[in-house]
Amino acid sequence: MAPLVPSSQPWVEKYRPRQVKDVAHQEEVVRVLTNTLQTADLPHMLFYGPPGTGKTTTALAIAYQLYGPELYKSRVLELNASDDRGINVVRTKIKNFAAVAVGTTRKGGYPCPPYKIIILDEADSMTEDAQNALRRTMETYSKVTRFFFICNYISRIIEPLASRCAKFRFKPLSEEVMSNRISHICNEEGLNLDAQALSTLSAISQGDLRRAITYLQSAARLFGSSISSTDLISVSGTIPEDVVKSLLASCKSGEFDVANKEVNNIIADGYPISQLISQFLDVVVNVDDIPDEQKARICKKLGEADKCLVDGADEYLQLLDVASETIRALFDMPQGMVF
């Protein structure tokens, strides 16, 4: 039994790669970046791609490699979405940080180029106004600062900003890479993970390594050192496949009451419905015996229900609505009543 000393440090931080070359699975990005790092002359950069693919890690690693631990604090400003990033912050905080000039003082073998780095995590959640304000700031201080933008959707970054940056796309991690990484961590932490659990973990985290590690850590906390795949599922808040399947099955029966009962049970078991809906979507889309038109109808309903849930609508009613619409779609009943 490995030491289960509760470390306050999240594993995500603990196992974050410190070097750009250690970043998993993003070969092209890594290659280009290592080249530029050698010259220590960076353009502004924009990293985009799905969550948990190493964008933040890369950005941090670059900063670290450039400045080393000592200068890091004074040279790098990190802002993420939980910080207040209204237009005023952009105007004052970033400006103040950028306005202080720095010199080139090599320390401890790090290149220490004469500029500062500002990392804007989750840049796509910034308002358009703030982004516009940034554009001005970028120009003014381009001599002394470099901006790293990190976002999931490049479409949400305004064009003028995007065009000023070198763009790097991060692709989702393959299952294999993920498993490697996870088993590495398991070794380090002394966890027992069987093959099934490993593949479950890759499946539920959907190519998001950070999420996978978070799940792993939570599961380890809750269930101790040997973790089964059900443990992982219960921690992740994902819903066991058979629950989703049985919902679909009950809809296929065509009986409203059967479906209603199933819905009632799901609610009573406390599964998060928004999650259920997204999993239901996967199941429906992948099922073979439903014609496309019906699938489309169901998907449309799922979309509507999801919106309602975001607005805070009642879970039971929404799920019931989804179920009933599914029944009607499967049996080609019209949507409105016709007598």
Partner: peptide, 11 residues
């Protein structure tokens, strides 16, 4: 038949 309709409107 009505059930479907009603539950939709309730939601």
């Amino acid at each position: 038949d009505l059930k479907h309709e009603i539950c939709h409107w309730a939601a």
